[in-house]
Design a protein around this nucleic acid. Structure first.
Lengths: 349, 349
DNA sequence: AAAATGAACGTTAGCGTTAACGTTATTTGA
DNA sequence: TCAAATAACGTTAACGCTAACGTTCATTTT
């Protein structure tokens, strides 16, 4: 004597309410559970009935309610991801690696960007937790204390990606940005450069930029006893930042090599040099970072550092999936860096 | 005589189960409903008790279960978004515009990329529908019939963005790509060009590229009676595509102007010309699209078409929110295009 | 002073699904 | 041939939350 659920709406002057499992069951003359089993592909229904049920479900345009499912099984197949920004290739590459991995494992990813704000990250984490995600991914290591508390208190696996530390919240996959700065410094020193400079953005919370600068600075302090000039112009985009930062540095001091936060900025720098009639690498060395797509068409090969971003995404996702499935995993996994010598720095002296 | 829910786990050798509303209620000596009301900020609790409850909830690190909430109220504050790709500035710009708008209205967005596959779009739409989202956004107009059926059958508002049509699934905000192609064609014709070519990617389902090419083709057919050469190399990225496509076209015919799917490809083309010793615009005209960041640092201003992508995102999101709130909205809203004459095409003759 | 009001709570009944356990036919084994 | 095993179902009770309606008790109104 149960009433059919879809009748609850009294009269339906608009689009009618979507079918639920109950409606499919009624129409197929089976119990709700048989429909549930048929839909999920678990056994407990005969092949004949399963086909029949699936046919009817399709006919009725039945779409399972994930909220009800997640509530019943007390978890979801969502992976929550926090990125600083969608701009640029870097995070898009990492993201693609992760997504491909999650997709093929049946997980969906929900993404938010924080624009480099730990407060925004915290509010995202709060929202995420309310969805009972299977896992959470944060970019970098710079979090609000409450973010860390919340995540530690929850049973949900957490991956910190892009940066590297031995003491992650849970697990960590990334590169050592300080080491990257050192690599660039070592290379520059080996080529005989003496007056380095660094261009990045004025973002308060891009600790990767700070770490790379620190690595570079330490090498030059040790090997040459020189300071690293630094510019952080507030420009609209990476290309402009590189251009403006270079102009600023060329006005302020007389660097013989400028290192940039990424290849796009380095390109902006190259354009600035070209405009001022400076030749690269004769008058000035230029070093990028990340080996971005742009570099593939430049007539002069850019000196840069290769970061395996896609691989990082895949590795991170794989590690997180392992954690989710209870497989023991390494706390922290650093990815290799490779300095790519190019023609925007002078040849070995 | 109700048992405390958190005790259900028998013994808790790991992190204990997260607190639920019931636990907070017990600890605060009030009913579940008072906690619910306090958390949601609706009235029905005294200020004194509300503060007390919120304090306790925070102490217990209580996080509401969104699945249960969505199930109970039969909707969510999710907006599902489908994009072709995260690569490139275009969709990142649109996305940023949309996200900002949704965020400030209290909605979260869940995003998926289809890599230009309508099949992938369909499976995403299916998954989306199961989450009872408040709205759905698709990029472009090229969908599987079943996608359209599903969305038409559901009561959920749908926005199609980036492209333009008078017969959207529900509502539509974008630009007319055919018109954009015509604009480029008109400009090229007015500058006296006679042998146009077009470079894009080999993606089967980027109908925008096809529409722009069609617009360009029709103008040249009408005004000059000439064909448009076309190259669609399978390269790794936009820059390389532009480079390779240009090489291909220069080998095949003798175009006097090449139009590209976007500025990045145009830059690849410029680099190809530079390498071959061709001077732009004397030997060849170059036209980009979208006015991307890169263009801001190029020494020679690129002829391109400005698209208001961020505005498009904001407009689209605003329209969709209006639909969600039952406010009457226009079916379809085209955004303006502006041709930006530059120095990579010859001056008016 | 009795009645009417309203704020501040609590109770009940779902929301749509699944896990766990029943029940009924059908097959199998000795 | 009959108990035992198995396949194919159905029933019941959650999952954590909220809408709708009850209840209580201090105010206000007449």
């Amino acid at each position: 004597m149960q009433k059919i659920a879809s009748e609850r709406s009294g009269f339906m002057n608009k689009k009618h309410h979507p079918a639920k499992i109950e409606d499919v069951a009624a129409r197929a003359n089976v119990s709700i559970m048989s429909v549930s089993r048929a839909i999920r592909g678990v056994d407990g229904v005969s092949e004949k009935k399963r086909r029949e049920i699936l046919r009817i479900a399709r006919e009725m345009k039945y779409v399972p309610n994930s909220n009800a499912r997640s509530l019943a099984v007390a978890n979801s197949n969502l992976i929550g991801i926090s990125l600083p920004t969608f701009a640029g290739e870097v995070f898009a590459d990492i993201l693609n690696g992760m997504r491909r991995t999650f997709d093929s494992a049946g997980y969906s990813s929900v993404i938010d960007t924080t624009e480099y704000s730990p407060e925004a990250e915290l509010s995202w984490v709060r929202r995420l937790l309310s969805w009972q995600p299977a896992g959470i991914i944060l970019t970098g290591l710079d979090h609000q204390p409450e973010t860390v508390d919340l995540l530690r208190a929850s049973p949900i696996p957490v991956l910190e990606i892009w940066d590297h530390t031995d003491t992650p919240i849970d697990i960590c996959v990334g590169i050592d940005h300080y080491r990257a700065g050192q690599m660039i410094g070592d290379h520059a020193v080996s080529l005989g450069y003496r007056r380095p400079a660094f261009v990045s953005t004025p973002r308060g919370h891009d600790t990767r930029a700070d770490n790379r600068l620190a690595g570079l600075r330490d090498v030059f302090a040790r090997e040459r006893g020189t300071e690293v000039l630094s510019a952080r112009p507030q420009s609209g985009n990476s290309f402009a930042t590189g251009f403006d930062g270079t102009a600023e540095l060329l006005g302020a001091g007389a660097p013989d090599i400028i290192c940039y936060l990424n290849d796009h900025m380095a390109f902006g720098g190259l354009m600035c040099c070209q405009m001022r009639g400076l030749s690269v690498p004769q008058d000035l060395g230029i070093v990028g970072f990340n080996q971005l797509d742009l570099a593939s068409v430049l007539p002069r090969k850019l000196t840069t550092v290769r970061t395996l971003r896609r691989l990082m995404g895949i590795t991170g996702a794989t590690q997180l999936l392992a954690r989710i499935n209870g497989v023991p995993t390494e706390k922290s996994k650093p990815l290799p860096l490779e300095l790519i010598p190019g023609e925007t720095t002078r040849a070995q002296i």
